[in-house]
Structures are given as C-alpha cells and as structure tokens.
Design a protein around this nucleic acid. Sequence first.
DNA 1: CCTTAGCACTCGTATTATCAGAGTGCTAAG
DNA 2: CTTAGCACTCTGATAATACGAGTGCTAAGG
Lengths: 354, 354
Amino acid sequence: MPLNERAELLLKLLIHRYISDGHPVGSRTLARETGLDISPATVRNVMADLEDMGLIESPHTSSGRVPTAQGYRVFIDTLLKVRPLTNDAIAEIEDRLYSDQDPQRILSTATDILSRITKFAGVILLPRHQHTGFKQLEFLRLSARRVLVILVTSDGGVQNRVLATDREYTESELIEASNYFNSTYHGQSLEQVRHILLNDMQHDSDEMNRVMKTAVQVAQKMFDADRVEESDVLLSGEENLLTVPEFSQLGKLRELFDTFKTKQDLLELLAKSMAATGISIFIGDESGYHALNECSVVAAPYEVDGRSIGTLGVIGPTRMDYADVIPIVDVTARLLGSALGTLDSDDIAGESVS
Amino acid sequence: MPLNERAELLLKLLIHRYISDGHPVGSRTLARETGLDISPATVRNVMADLEDMGLIESPHTSSGRVPTAQGYRVFIDTLLKVRPLTNDAIAEIEDRLYSDQDPQRILSTATDILSRITKFAGVILLPRHQHTGFKQLEFLRLSARRVLVILVTSDGGVQNRVLATDREYTESELIEASNYFNSTYHGQSLEQVRHILLNDMQHDSDEMNRVMKTAVQVAQKMFDADRVEESDVLLSGEENLLTVPEFSQLGKLRELFDTFKTKQDLLELLAKSMAATGISIFIGDESGYHALNECSVVAAPYEVDGRSIGTLGVIGPTRMDYADVIPIVDVTARLLGSALGTLDSDDIAGESVS
DNA sequence: CCTTAGCACTCGTATTATCAGAGTGCTAAG
DNA sequence: CTTAGCACTCTGATAATACGAGTGCTAAGG
C-alpha cells in the first residue's frame, strides 16, 4: 500500500495545516492549499483512502480530518523536512551549556534550554554512573559516627553522602582508607569498582587489613545507596503544558503531572531512546503509557567519547511542530555531549579513563 | 463593631459549610444548620450585617454568601478550633523525618509530608546558612585548574561546588589552605566568616601569606556563588492543585505555576512568616501577590536550638480546611526542627557552635 | 426592638429549539 | 479518473424558556 505522490502531498499538507492551527482540516481547505488545480471532491476521495490506511481520521462524522499516530509516524519518517537551527540559535545554546563547570548544573541547564525554546517540557535522563570512571573517593569525618563520603567521577561529577557508621573511625584511619581506595581503584569504571567491592566483601575479611575493610565497607554503602536513588530524570517546563489546548481537561493534565512526579515511566521511555541511535520519537500511545496518550516525546541520546551516557528530550502534545523540535533536541544533545566532554578532557593528563 | 454571639455562630457555620462543599450558602441552609429555632429571614438579616462588615459577600445578586478574605481572617483568629493530629499521625510524620541523616533530604521529605497529607502543595524555605555555624572546609584538586570545595556546616549540611581557579594549585597548597582555614574560622557562624573574608580581601594582601590568600580567595568565590543561588525554596505536590475546583481555569493555574517556578514571590512570602513567631496565615490577596489571589498559605518557622532557621508551609485554595491544615503545618515544623536538631547534637563534643 | 411570614424580584443554570456553517459520502456525468 | 451536485450529518452559536435558589423589603406579631 504505497502512497502515490499526490496522497503524500495531501497528507503532508494536512499535517502541516493541522499542526499550525489545530483544527481538523476539510477537503475544501486542503484543495486550496495544494496550489494544484484540484477539486474538493477529488481531495475527498484521496482522504477516504488515507483514512482506510489508518493515517487520518475524523473526530466526528462531519468535520475535517486529523492525523492519527500512524499518520504522524509516516509523516515524520518519510515526508518531514526539518527546519535547521540558525547559527545564532546554536551559538546561544552552546553559550549556555558551556557557561558552567558543574555537570549537574549543566544537565539541568539543558532541560531548561529545551523547555524554553520549544515551550513544552524538557526532560533529561542523567548519565548512568556505572559507565563513567571512578576518579577519587574522600572521607570526611563529621562526628563520631558520621562520615561524609565524597565520590568524584571521571566526568567531573561529584556526589556526596553522609553515612552513619557502625563504629567510630579516627581521622587518620579515614585518610589511610581513602588513600588505599584511590590507589587501588584508580582508573576503573564505577561498574568495575562495584563488582570488585562485591567480591571483596565475599572473601573472608581476614585477608584484608582494617583500613581496607573500612574503605570497602563505607564505599559499599555509598554505592548501594546510589543504586536505589531514583532521581535519574530531570524535568523542567511542565508549566508550559498547562496552556497547550490539547491538555485543557484537568483530568488528563493531572494524570500527566502524576506521571511526571513519579518519573518511573519517563525513565523507562528514555531508556528505550538511549538504546537506539539518533533521534527517537514516541508518538501518542506508541509509548505505551496511558498518561502520555496525547503526547509525543522527541528524544536523543547524548554522547561523551562516542558513548551514549544519557538521553534528553522534549515532551509535548502530539500536535507539535516536529520540524522545529527535532533539530532542537538534536543540537542540544550534541552540544551537551561535547560540553560534558570538555570537562572530561580538562582532567589532568593520565587520569582519564581508558 | 463587635460580633454578637449569634453572628459569630452563623459566620462560623457558614464558613464550615462553605469549606466542606464549596457552594455559596444561603439563609435557609444556614438556618437549618444552627440547630436553633430560627427562621431564614432572621438569618438573612444577620447575613446582611456580616456583609456590611465585609466578612461575607455574594458572588451574584442572588445566590448564597461566601466568606471574604477578611471573613476567613476573623474566623481563623477568633472562632477556629483546630483539630489536633492523632498520636498515630504525629508518629508517622516523626518516623519519616527521623529516618534520614542528610539534612537536605530531610527537608525535602518535609515538603513531601505536607503535600501528601494536606493534598495541597508543600513548600519549605531552606535554612539560611548565614545563621548556621561554619564547621569545615575542604579542597579537593580535580584537575589543573578545577578545585572542588566542600563546605560542611554545623547543622550537618554539606555543600559542594566546583571552582575554576585562576592559577594552578598543588595538592599540598590546598591541604595547607584548608588547614589554615579550618583552624582560623572554626566555630564561627557563616555570617561571621563571610564578613571576615570580606575584610581580609580589603586589607592589602601583603599581610597574608600565599596559603591564606588561596583559602580566602577560593572560599570567597564559594560564598559568593552561594549567595546568588536562588534554590532556597523547595516545593512539592503542585500537581495536587490541578484538581482543586477553584483552579479550574487554566489561565489562573498557569500564573500560579509560573510563580512557583520563579520562586521569588514564595521566598519573600515565607521570609515574612519566618520573621513572625508561630503560625502565619496569608489569606487570598492578603499576600499581595496576584497569582496567589485565590490561595492561602499556612506557614510556620522551624527552629533549631530555639532559633528559627527556616519556614515551611502549605499552599492551597483559600477555601481549605484550616482546622486540619494548621496543626499539620505546626507539628511538621516542630518535628522538622527537632529532627534537624538531633543531627546537630550528634556532633562530637566541643564542635557545636556556641 | 427583634423576629418572622409573605411576596415580588433577580440571577444562574439547564433544557430545548433553531439555524448557519462546514464537511462528508454518494451518484452520475464529463 | 475527475468533478459537479446534492442530500445528509454534525458542531457551535444564539435565543427562548422554565426552574430553582436566594435575596430584600414590608408589614404584622411578640
């Protein structure tokens, strides 16, 4: 069931039209739109075909047609010409991303950029720390039984956590411990470190001296806590969705915001995008999540050193201007990747992970 | 213009009734409600008086009456009997707040508690670090020109920031610097430290050795950055407001969420509450912020060691059940204070701030 | 002087009817 | 295959209507 040229043209025009003014579009309008000398009746025939193929539908017996998720899919995959960003726009994104040194803040800047430019919600799947390198671990004694553990990763990220310890450690024990730890695990990936730690815990503790045990125990706790953490998704600009006419029913909106709050579904969806290469687009119910029924998600992984470490994207109504949104997501992902990469290469020679 | 007993009773009943079902309440309903043998006409006379006093108003010429902001004010100040929390409920809040060691997370748990229980939005003004004590500053060399600065405060809080430095510092310089810094400023309040730092910068640098300068410069940067930071307000449960009938107009809602996003107004409002003692309640436009027109904010400062260090509260529609919300805010503030205080006293003897 | 019954009046809301406009599907002719 | 014509459907706006709830006022009664 290949589309002939005219059907393609009409589908494309219909979607453009629908995206730009949001009303179902009828045969007369569409006939005028083509520029060709073609009558509404003819258009109606073609539209009937498109409807049979499941690409468009009419909300009511007699109002114009509206694209279905499948219609958008065909449109995006085969008909869409994206509208590249101007150099100015690119430079502006770049400026904002490069104006900070702290990876955590850069990431949140990225979602902010996405939501501000698109006027929808920006979302980002934070880097999975398993794939980044271990760089440094420091212990700071806060009080008798509370130790602050600071983990520095090769991408310049810093995490800290206050741990309640089982027994009291002295200042010097902790220093020794961190020295031991840093020299032992230097240059490994976090994933590897975690594995080794697990092993070390299984070997009976006799082989290890007390200091090693200290370090391992404390670090183990830290890694454990890190795994549980579900703050892996950052969202911003949700408020933009309030004024999107598609979401004018408060019930829908509530459902959507609840989904945003738990983040679980978003996380899974973005994980899918990360597994793919390039831009992923989930249209309407394609995502499989009920709350995202009327939403589309445009996402792209961002890479450092040629490896995808996370995904960012935009969540908006299915009726969004893909030609605009796609390049924005694309460019932001690239620039974010290189902004993070820059931090990386800023490391002292010899400390980068192989 | 004092209210006689019957007028008070009627105002109270009217507000209760309005709070519970949201419809303007008329004379017949109210007459029935009293239990007294009183006719609707009599009630109407009283209502007319109350309207003259500005305590109630009718949305339209002929529908029942609704309390005005001023009416709520009188109600809350003189007529309201709060509904204390059950011991179970208190214990539950306590459990959640005490189940964590990290002040940052405890604070965010607090807003979560507020929003979950009240079904409105929870908000918290984070502790003003100026008033807490300085405890420890550590420098960690990340790369040639990037230093991680870790500031530990006496309340157990940890802040870290990556700084790009003007020149390269060696590992040992940094250690010396932090030693110098920690011994010099030990036990001072952050406020004091900041002041001394400012002074130190003004004295011509000749009097200071290089290490001192290092520490001061880096710390100065850190404090500066901290001051600018406007992440002083934490909000949660905004999505609860989506289903509040009062906010069914998307325009209003959008305005509200924008206010939430910038946080500036909330910050000012909560600052007012912190200046007061005990529960503050801002009803409707009393707050002075247009977006909060139809909202009330119930807030209470939380104290550690008898000193208010922040404020938490609930943002909901003016028509909220104050009898429930007030004790929730009150109890949460108290428990949060003591939860944070516990962390404090956990410090090793001699390290607490006088 | 306070209370109350009665009554006319005002609005808001829901229901219904009506009508114009937009669009469709079908048929038959070019 | 295209197109004109036509009957039909459905939406949305507008107006008419009726109804219910509630008010304010007045006048009578305690």
